[in-house]
Design a protein around this nucleic acid. Sequence first.
DNA 1: ATGATAACTGATCCTGAGTATCAAAACGGG
DNA 2: CCCGTTTTGATACTCAGGATCAGTTATCAT
Lengths: 156, 156
Amino acid sequence: MSPRRQNRAAAEELTSRLSARGRRPTAQRLLVLEALRRSRRTVTAADLFEQLRADHPLIGRATVFRSLDSLVDAGLAQRFERAGHVSAYAACSTEHHHHLVCTGCDTTVEIDEASIARLAGELSQRHGFTVHHGTLDFYGLCASCSDRASGAQRRA
Amino acid sequence: MSPRRQNRAAAEELTSRLSARGRRPTAQRLLVLEALRRSRRTVTAADLFEQLRADHPLIGRATVFRSLDSLVDAGLAQRFERAGHVSAYAACSTEHHHHLVCTGCDTTVEIDEASIARLAGELSQRHGFTVHHGTLDFYGLCASCSDRASGAQRRA
DNA sequence: ATGATAACTGATCCTGAGTATCAAAACGGG
DNA sequence: CCCGTTTTGATACTCAGGATCAGTTATCAT
Ligand SMILES: [Mn+2]
Ligand SMILES: [Mn+2]
Ligand SMILES: [Zn+2]
Ligand SMILES: [Zn+2]
């Protein structure tokens, strides 16, 4: 697949994913998505702004933040909360999956699911990755918040 | 166990955990730990500052942040990166375990490990928790960063 | 095409969590 | 008690991210 065709395919996917939500496939959003896809590491908004401004001096800082939000919202990118209270981003297929993230260089590797107990050890070996800590947290609504929400919906 | 005895036990645990690292079990750190233990929800530094200042008007904002860092470092509390780039905290035993966190009210429930694939479903039922998204990410050093680190250590 | 409408951009300003600094205070071993 | 170390609280600061708004661009129905 030529670079040009690849670019076109990316643009089409961007269009379909975004237009489903009434959002537009702009040049800036495509630039951000392409930059994410070029990197095997998670990248911060500041990183991307600096990087993109080299070739596109007109792009705005706020636009980079907003583009990242849009891409995450459209399922084309994933947000990582990096220690130090900074968000980092990676281009990701929308299927649910998890990652190995290097705290040294931010390299990211996708992992497939398995028994969590043995997972860390297996993955360390397979990827040469020294796991220091893992996080497994499920976010959602507790019973009472869930009741409250459906109650409010019923009333509306 | 009377409240008084409980308090004393907390102070002793604080002392042993902190003094192992050359840190002191101060009144402020104990106040923060007790406030954390009183809550079934994750709490932000700002929450704690406001709450503690009611009874202890002299406590400093920076001290709350620093106390939380100390407690996390000593394994007496755990940090959660709440969406919106704010850290939240919960008192936690140091054994490795995971959580259900309500995005509505920040109520936190400890979960025991099991096959990750079935986990979310089982936990939803057991706790009446509607899981919206789960995060499983392992953080550590990739092979090349790991090599670089041990190389540096050898040189030191 | 053309105009109406809604979404988007970029410049600017603002917010607020968290940190650096530093002088004063509290600790804890001897 | 005494002295070096740690901690505290006040203050000033940083910096990621969001709000605002006037000007621009995409989409769609004529
Ligand atoms: Mn991925
Ligand atoms: Mn816990
Ligand atoms: Zn690395
Ligand atoms: Zn809840």
